[in-house]
Nucleic acid binder design. Structure first.
Length: 656
RNA sequence: GCCGGCAUAGCUCAACUGGUAGAGCAACCGCCUUGUAAGCGGUAGGUUGCGGGUUCGAGUCCUGCUGCCGGCACCA
């Protein structure tokens, strides 16, 4: 007789069971209907197979039914297994590798001589539905390592053999079977394939390197999405469709903000309205720097020797633009490089003249345009370009000032993101990479400081989630990355704070300390938006082009109904311009319906309709983007309220 | 850079298995003086991304390149 263990149920009740009792037994002991609906159980919050015995420890138990949010993970994981079975049934000789659950779905990586194409997806999907309909139970076995190795080797599953070998000694080698098909898997799984349901869809095929390493073979990855119900699936697909309408590349064209063309892969042609957005952002950031930073400007093109000194020529040569005189015969030929970073320039400025410890911290800012020869496959609209402007700054300070400077930067970043309405921000601390400079002691010290700062950042704001990215730091020091999401949830690094123990040393930068000795400053690289281009891309998507009044490229259109009101409309526009607003008039001989439609499409936040009536009464009729409602205001009122509303949030704070 | 896909007018798309490019919207020109998301009529617009090939004939088939899209890798 096995040992009796005590289980605590969600309602707080406590009951005794045999340690060999399974989740299924426990569900059955509660009610027949629960036993039928159960797909798994959780012991102290950890999901397990329903067929797993509860074991001797006992604890808090929850029976997981299919409609439990935690079941979604199982549905997706099971779907990945079924997809793998479908693929192997349809395309014999295909090797399976790994197939994890991801946000909104799952994927599975396959090795096959001939890669899959999108046309294969419906076929695989159909086979999956067949397998699900067979409703075979998932069963688990623990195999001896050697047997697993042997079986997979005999099947020609060489990637699986590698995975078996990678399982740490002492950990079980678990095999999950569904009918005749089986896979190495950590589990858990639901009871049978039928529980997956039919609310799934295969989304796309993509290449992916084995174990994420570009030195390895490229596998074919198939992505799928899976949900508990058809409604949820439809909702998700609908959300993706809606998100596509917010894509900054699409809105850039529709709103006439910018374009790209073949001759300039990865470089932006900013149109008038887009450039206004760009300048609005620069002006905002510049105001935020006022009083704390000194703005400078360093050259675009510098001799490559400077980049050799900085180390970039060695580390990043393949990503740099080389610049030289086009005349091959030129006698004074030198090799220059287009700057990929602003920091060496700022170090030169710092070095110009002797600095005292009393001068520190010195904060040099630059809206610095840099060029990087990014891999062709990395380019992505405004998000990843080859020429971009950073709202860059470098802080030269003492080690003691480091933590405080990081926190100050954090405040600046978070208040900026708040002004643009971001509600979800991830902050990552990236620690020492393999390829690095500086002693371990130095890294230990920096990482210790930054870990403390990260904790403080995490506490500072409820919109933030923090995490550590081990090994992701820059070669010269650890860093914080501030990550924002685009319309479809892709994450992009925007703000950053990077500690650098290396560059001051390389360039021999120093200050005179209290004791009249030369001392090396610590350097902090930081950016708030990161790249203005990327930040604008994110803003376009997050606002779906509906910018707040203070940021919109065209803030107001004054539209007439008939030409009788032309003079008055011009007067209204003049008054608004005088109040600092960006205004256009629309005096065309068109119906007001037509004008409203057109400016609504252009996402102008405010349309002021001025007809004969308004001209006589000296009023305006105000219509807001996204609303059908109209308000009649006196001209004075309208100017005052729009001017107030168009005040940027930082200036509003300063005024109050 | 790697894997897969795509490339026809400014935009969205059409042109059966190869038979010398067509529509809507936008643009331009007229008419309409109009009250809150498309008035009416007309005109113009393409060396089908670029280069080679197969063919009597290529937007369509083959091939090289370029760019873009989705991932992967990279991201100082």
């Amino acid at each position: 007789m096995a040992q009796a263990v005590s289980l605590i149920f969600p309602d707080g009740s406590r009951r005794e069971y045999d340690a060999v009792a399974t989740g299924a037994d426990i569900a059955a002991s509660i009610s027949k209907s629960l036993a039928k609906k159960a797909v798994a159980y959780a012991l102290d919050g950890t999901l397990r197979d329903l067929a797993d015995p509860i074991g001797e420890a006992g604890g808090r138990i929850e029976i997981i039914t299919r409609d439990d949010p935690r079941a979604l993970e199982l549905i997706r994981h099971d779907a990945a297994h079924v997809m793998a079975e479908a693929v192997q049934e349809l395309y014999p000789g295909t090797q399976v590798t790994i197939g994890p659950v991801i946000e909104n779905g799952f994927y599975y990586d396959f090795a096959r001589d001939e890669p899959f194409t999108p046309e294969d997806l419906p076929v695989i999907e159909k086979k999956m539905r067949e397998i699900i309909a067979r409703n075979k139970p998932f069963t688990k076995e623990v195999w001896p390592r050697e047997r697993a190795r042997q079986v997979f080797r005999d099947k020609g599953e060489f990637y699986k053999v590698e995975l078996v070998d990678a399982i740490p000694e002492g950990e079980d080698v678990k095999i999950y079977a569904q009918g005749d098909w089986f896979d190495l898997c950590r589990g858990p799984h639901m009871v049978s394939t039928g529980q997956i349901g039919n609310a799934f869809k295969l989304m796309k095929v993509a290449g992916a390197y084995w174990r994420g390493d570009s030195e390895n073979a490229m596998l074919t990855r198939i992505y799928g999405t899976a949900w508990a119900t058809q409604e949820q699936l439809d909702q998700y697909l609908h959300m993706l469709e809606e998100a596509e309408k917010r894509d900054h590349r699409r809105l850039g064209r529709e709103m006439d903000l910018f374009h790209f063309q073949e001759e300039g892969p990865g470089v932006v042609f900013w149109h008038a309205k887009g450039w206004r957005l760009f300048q609005n952002l620069v002006s905002y950031m510049r105001r935020r720097l006022d009083g704390t930073y000194e703005e400078v400007n360093a050259p675009q093109v510098l001799d490559h020797s400077l980049w050799q000194t900085s180390g970039h020529w060695g580390w990043y040569k393949e990503n740099m633009f080389k610049v030289e005189c086009a005349d091959e015969e030129a006698e004074d030929k030198r090799v220059f490089a287009l700057k990929p970073m602003n920091c060496p320039g700022h170090v030169q400025i710092f070095k110009h003249g002797l600095k005292s410890y009393r001068d520190l911290p010195i904060r040099l800012a630059e809206f610095g345009t840099v060029h990087r020869y990014e891999p062709s496959g990395a380019l992505h609209g405004l998000m990843r370009v080859r020429g971009f402007t950073q709202d860059d700054a470098h802080i030269f300070c003492t080690e003691e000032q480091l933590a405080e400077e990081c926190l100050k930067i954090n405040e600046l970043i978070l208040s900026t993101y708040a002004d643009f309405g971001f509600k979800e921000i991830k902050v990552f601390l990236s620690t020492r990479p393999e390829k690095r400079v500086g002693s371990d002691a130095l890294w230990d010290h920096a990482e210790e400081i930054m870990t403390g700062v990260l904790e403080e950042i995490g506490r500072s704001d409820s919109r933030i989630t923090t995490a550590i990215n081990p090994g992701d730091g820059a070669f010269y020091g650890p860093k914080f990355d501030y990550v924002l999401k685009d319309a479809i949830g892709r994450e992009w690094q925007c703000g950053t704070t990077q500690i650098d123990f290396n560059l001051p040393e390389r360039f021999g930068a120093f200050y005179i300390d209290r004791d009249s000795e030369k001392k090396q400053p610590v350097m902090i690289h930081r950016a708030i938006c990161g790249s203005m281009e990327r930040f604008l891309g994110i803003l376009i998507e997050n606002y779906a082009g509906h910018f707040p009044l203070w940021f919109a490229p065209v803030q107001v259109v004054v539209a007439t109904i008939t030409s009788d009101a032309d003079a008055y409309a011009c007067e209204v526009a003049g008054r608004l311009k005088a109040a600092g607003l960006t205004v256009e008039t629309d005096l065309r001989n068109e119906k007001i319906n037509y004008k409203v439609r057109e400016h609504s499409h252009a996402k102008v936040p405010v349309i002021l309709v001025c007809g004969k009536r308004e001209a006589e009464e000296r009023t305006v009729n105000m219509r807001r983007l996204g609303s059908r409602e109209q308000a009649s205001l006196s001209l004075e009122e309208a100017v005052a309220s729009l001017a107030g509303e168009a005040t940027p949030p930082d200036m509003r704070r300063a005024a109050s």
